[in-house]
C-alpha cells in the first residue's frame, strides 16, 4: 500500500550531477525514435538496364511525393544512370561496377546501407516497375506522420499483358496479401536480410516484429505488363537463377507462360 502513495512524487529542481563526456554528448537534443511530424520520406530503388521500361514514370511519380531518392544501379549497361541523374531529388546514386543481381540479398543490404547514410525517417522500398495509386500517394504523409506504428503494407497487383488488367489466379494473387514496403527507419535496429539469392524481402526481417499498419492501398506492378518476349526472357532468367525452385515456386515460374491467364480489370479508385 505504501507504493500507491508513491505515484505523485513530483520532480523538484534539477541539479546537474557530475557529468561525464558521455553525458555531454547526450546533452544535445535526443532525436526521438518516433515523431509525429516533419518526417522525411526517402524512396530507395535498385535499378538495372531500365531503358524502355517504366523507370522514368516511376521516378516522376516518386518525385511528386517523396523527399529524397536513393538509388543503387546494379551495373547497368544502358543509360539508366543518366536517366536517374535527371531527377533532382536523387540524394544518393551508387553505381556498382559488377552486378549483384544473382545475389539479391547483397543488393538489398547495400541499398539499405546507402539509404541509412542519408538519415532517413521513413523508407519506401520501390522497384523500378511499381506505381502507387493516387489514393496511396495522398495518404502517404498521414501514414508516416504518426508515432503508433512502424511499417505500412500495401496490396500489390501484377499487371498482365498491358496496363488495364492484373492477373488473379492460383499462382498470381499477391494482391490478396499485404506487402510491407514502407518502414520507419530506426537507428541501431537490426537490418539483416536473409542470405537468399532471389525473392529477398524488401525490408529487413526484424522490422516485422514492430507494430505495423495494413492498408488496402494498391500498387501497380508493371513487370509483367509487357509483351510475350519480355515474359519469356524473365522466365528463362528465373529458371536459370533458381532451377530447383529453392527461392520461388516452380509451378509459378511455369505459369508465366500461360496463354490464357485469368485477368481482372483494374478500376481507378475515386
Amino acid at each position: 500500500m505504501l507504493t500507491e502513495m508513491m505515484g505523485s512524487r513530483s520532480a523538484t529542481d534539477l541539479k546537474a550531477g557530475s557529468e561525464s563526456s558521455e553525458a555531454a554528448v547526450a546533452r544535445a537534443t535526443i532525436r526521438r525514435v518516433r515523431r509525429r511530424s516533419g518526417n522525411k520520406l526517402t524512396a530507395m530503388l535498385q535499378v538495372r538496364n531500365e531503358r524502355g521500361k517504366y523507370l522514368t514514370q516511376v521516378l516522376e511519380q516518386l518525385s511528386g511525393f517523396v523527399d529524397e531518392l536513393v538509388i543503387v544501379d546494379d551495373a547497368s549497361e544502358d543509360d539508366t544512370v543518366a536517366l536517374c541523374r535527371k531527377f533532382p531529388k536523387v540524394a544518393r546514386l551508387v553505381e556498382l561496377p559488377r552486378p549483384l543481381f544473382g545475389e539479391e540479398w547483397k543488393l538489398r543490404s547495400l541499398l539499405w546501407q546507402v539509404a541509412s547514410t542519408t538519415e532517413p525517417d521513413w523508407l519506401l522500398s520501390v522497384d523500378a516497375d511499381e506505381l502507387y495509386e493516387d489514393r496511396a500517394i495522398s495518404a502517404m504523409r498521414p501514414l508516416i506522420d504518426q508515432d503508433q506504428y512502424d511499417w505500412v503494407s500495401f496490396r500489390f497487383h501484377d499487371f498482365w499483358n498491358g496496363l488495364t488488367h492484373y492477373r488473379d489466379d492460383e499462382h498470381w494473387n499477391i494482391h490478396r496479401r499485404q506487402t510491407m514496403t514502407l518502414v520507419r527507419y530506426l537507428p541501431g535496429f537490426p537490418c539483416l536480410y536473409p542470405q537468399w539469392d532471389h525473392h529477398v524481402p524488401r525490408l529487413p526481417l526484424a522490422y516485422a516484429a514492430l507494430p505495423g499498419r495494413l492498408t488496402d492501398f494498391r500498387v501497380k506492378h508493371l513487370g509483367w505488363a509487357g509483351d510475350w518476349e519480355s515474359k519469356l526472357a524473365k522466365y528463362h532468367r528465373y529458371k536459370a537463377l533458381d532451377p530447383e525452385g529453392k527461392w520461388g515456386s516452380l509451378a509459378q515460374y511455369e505459369s508465366i507462360l500461360d496463354l490464357n491467364p485469368k485477368l481482372t480489370e483494374w478500376t481507378e479508385a475515386t
Binding site: L14, G17, E19, S20, R27
Partner: peptide, 12 residues
C-alpha cells in the same frame, strides 16, 4: 530523453 538532454546521464 529529457534527463539525457538536461545533462542527467546518471538518471537516464
Amino acid at each position: 530523453c529529457e534527463y539525457a538532454e538536461n545533462g542527467r546521464a546518471d538518471l537516464a
